[in-house]
């Protein structure tokens, strides 16, 4: 096998560095933040918040795997984050249902009864 093909194969088989995981998590967080800022539907806003939480979770687990002094405890924190996100989605969707019953809409810019 020629040397160039060997080096390309080595690059393809090497494990990605820590920065790669961190940047994927950061871009995922940014996409979720964009969606939470621009969409009007409250349910889609919840989905985008879940995307942001997942980006942060990915960062936590990447640190737990790569940093030697972390001891893998970031995975435990990620489990706690998943539980809290599940609680948040349950309460949030209950609030969305209650708002829909009284206002007939889930668009967040049409629910303005508390505007001063």
């Amino acid at each position: 096998m020629p040397a160039q093909a060997q080096s390309v194969l080595d690059a393809l088989l090497a494990s990605p560095p820590l920065q790669a995981y961190l940047i994927v998590g950061a871009i995922m967080f940014a996409i979720g933040a964009w969606g939470a800022l621009v969409r009007r539907n409250a349910v889609v806003i919840f989905m985008c918040v879940e995307l942001m939480i997942n980006g942060v979770n990915l960062t936590l687990v990447a640190f737990a795997d790569f940093l030697p002094n972390a001891g893998g405890l970031g995975v435990g924190y990620a489990v706690l984050v998943i539980a809290i996100a599940a609680a948040e989605i349950a309460v949030g969707l209950a609030i969305v249902l209650a708002v829909f019953r009284s206002r007939r809409t889930v668009n967040v810019d049409e629910v303005t009864s508390m505007r001063g």
Partner: peptide, 11 residues
């Protein structure tokens, strides 16, 4: 600088 980071510490 992540040069001290090494994969494989996860549980």
């Amino acid at each position: 600088d992540w040069s001290s980071a090494q994969a494989g510490n996860g549980p």
